[in-house]
Design a protein around this nucleic acid. Structure first.
Lengths: 239, 239
DNA sequence: TGTACATCAGTGAACGCGCGTTCACTGATGTAC
DNA sequence: TGTACATCAGTGAACGCGCGTTCACTGATGTAC
């Protein structure tokens, strides 16, 4: 480990890590907009200008946090999926709950990636491959379910044509899933329903964290479980 | 109009309006976090301290904008509903589209009320009655549908018990809808599905506006229509 | 209707703050011979 | 292994900025008699 690296290189890697860690802690305290380079530097006992050796600007530090957050959430989803065994419905429930739990434990990181975009900030290409990890986990479990019980799933999803460009869009997504799960792409109607499940999942989590459920589904645990089961039905997953 | 009001009182009402209008314009340009009292004052050709005669602090100005945004969205939903006639499914489609259209035309106002909460800002009681207007419109059209075709809706929604506290929560919401629509509360299973429809609707709009659909359902028009129809099915609305 | 006083709106200067970023510097670490 | 030079990390001071909020003030509007 660290073979062939100079002390300088090792120090650089470690300090870059320490900076993002400190920034994450600050994020958890004050939120994304109030996150300041100077406060991060202060926490590390450095002078603020020193950070510019590691991140060329505040936006780049933000980008690193965004990528880290997507990755951490992706890890949480993948780990929940892994522990759930093989049954598709169990996997879907586990992934949903894993995503929600992560979001509740990291509300500011969640808000950073799924809340209002920071004005003036443009997410670079770099974030996309990390952003796609939760959808990929969902796609993976659906592809496995499809391999086991394809016809039953289509029966539920129906075979009617999808409206307008949705057929094309879901086709592309289905094809994109194929390489990661040997031998199985997903048909467009299943992908369309997966998109519904995906938006519903994050819609509920955002409503819960951002306070929209006050006065109705608050606390949201039971509603969340109920909706996840509804979505399992919608997806044609076995009981 | 303005009867019994002194010139001073009229001027105060008008200027308060002009201030929130200017603030709304600024919001549309720079987003909520960057909204500044001083810039608003500048736009109005006033000195920044003058605003303190109208709003005791920046937070109070923000609150006014939040309430206005909820009200404007509520108006858009109600108006779309009104124009849709009497058929429940048409009404549901119209309200969904109306909410989405308003959000697309007022993205920063939308982000202000449905995006990440502004850190450190606590929404006062005042906002709640405005926040509830879109759910009230949805509740209204479902209550009307229920009056027409109650049994058919229950057949779709099922009669199995709702999990845990969800039964109680949806019961409260159902009872709250009753007074606004003569003679009709909504049974808990229908309310539960209405909550699903509500979160799905806003989940999709947020994903669309916040850029999560890039690479899949983008542009989102067809997916939106598809999902809205799925939700009509879920709600047991007639074809 | 006219006068004397009270209320209020808007001014302009100031306070104190923290921010992102630049820049010339010193001293430590690494590299070539 | 030792020396001479190049690279890099971190410092400290400074720039310029815009912000929210306070405060004593002046002049206009409203009220009581």
């Amino acid at each position: 480990m660290n073979a062939g690296r100079t002390a300088r290189e090792r120090a650089r890697v470690e300090l870059t890590q320490e900076i993002t860690d400190a920034a994450r802690r600050q994020l958890a305290e004050v939120g994304a907009e109030a996150l300041s380079l100077r406060a991060v530097a202060r926490e590390l006992g450095m002078v603020s200008s020193a950070l510019y050796r590691y991140f060329p600007s505040r936006d780049d530090l933000l980008t690193a946090l965004i990528v880290d957050a997507y990755d951490a959430l992706g890890d949480a989803a993948a780990e929940a999926d892994r522990q759930a065994g093989r049954h598709p419905t169990r996997r879907w429930r586990a992934v949903s709950a894993g995503v929600r739990d992560w979001a509740r434990e990291h509300r500011y990181e969640y808000a950073l990636i799924y809340g209002s975009p920071v004005p003036g900030y443009q997410a670079p290409q770099q974030t996309i491959s990390s952003a796609v990890r939760v959808p990929a986990v969902i796609g993976g479990l659906l592809a496995a379910a499809w391999q086991e019980a394809g016809p039953a799933m289509t029966a539920v999803a129906g075979t009617g044509p999808l409206p307008g460009r949705l057929a094309e869009q879901t086709g592309i997504v289905g094809a994109a899933i194929a390489p990661s799960v040997p031998g199985a792409g997903l048909p467009a109607p299943v992908v369309a329903r997966a998109l519904v499940a995906w938006t519903q999942l994050f819609g509920m989590i955002s409503f819960e964290l951002f306070g929209q459920f006050v006065g109705s589904a608050d606390p949201a645990d039971d509603f969340f479980g109920y909706a996840v089961d509804q979505l399992a039905d919608l997806l044609g997953l076995p009981d």
